[in-house]
Computed example of a mutant assay.
Amino acid sequence: MEDMHKDVMIQVRVPKEIRDKFKSIVERKAQTQAKVIRQLIERYIQDNE
């Protein structure tokens, strides 16, 4: 049976200053950038369906 949960990559451009601040906060909270972005996307979907 083929895996139903295939991950894909989303690339976005943000100013370096924003990326650096985001990375710093995420690391300070012992999280990963990918996990935080996934949570934001999931919340956006829930709020807008």
Rank of each mutant, 00 (worst) to 15 (best):
1 M>V: 12
1 M>K: 13
2 E>H: 11
2 E>D: 09
3 D>Y: 09
4 M>C: 12
6 K>C: 11
6 K>Y: 15
6 K>A: 14
6 K>G: 13
6 K>S: 13
7 D>C: 08
7 D>T: 08
8 V>M: 05
9 M>F: 08
9 M>H: 12
9 M>T: 06
11 Q>C: 04
11 Q>Y: 12
11 Q>S: 03
12 V>R: 11
13 R>P: 00
13 R>D: 00
14 V>M: 00
15 P>S: 08
16 K>S: 00
16 K>C: 03
18 I>E: 03
18 I>N: 03
18 I>C: 00
18 I>D: 04
19 R>L: 04
19 R>S: 01
20 D>C: 06
20 D>F: 11
20 D>K: 14
20 D>W: 12
21 K>W: 04
22 F>Q: 06
24 S>Q: 07
24 S>F: 08
24 S>P: 08
25 I>Q: 07
25 I>M: 10
25 I>A: 12
26 V>K: 12
27 E>H: 10
27 E>R: 13
28 R>S: 14
29 K>I: 13
29 K>Q: 10
30 A>W: 11
30 A>F: 10
31 Q>P: 10
31 Q>H: 11
32 T>Q: 10
34 A>L: 09
34 A>P: 11
34 A>T: 15
35 K>T: 08
35 K>P: 12
36 V>Q: 12
37 I>M: 06
37 I>D: 00
37 I>S: 00
38 R>N: 08
39 Q>V: 03
40 L>K: 15
41 I>V: 01
42 E>K: 15
42 E>Q: 13
42 E>C: 03
43 R>T: 05
44 Y>I: 09
46 Q>A: 03
47 D>P: 09
48 N>Y: 05
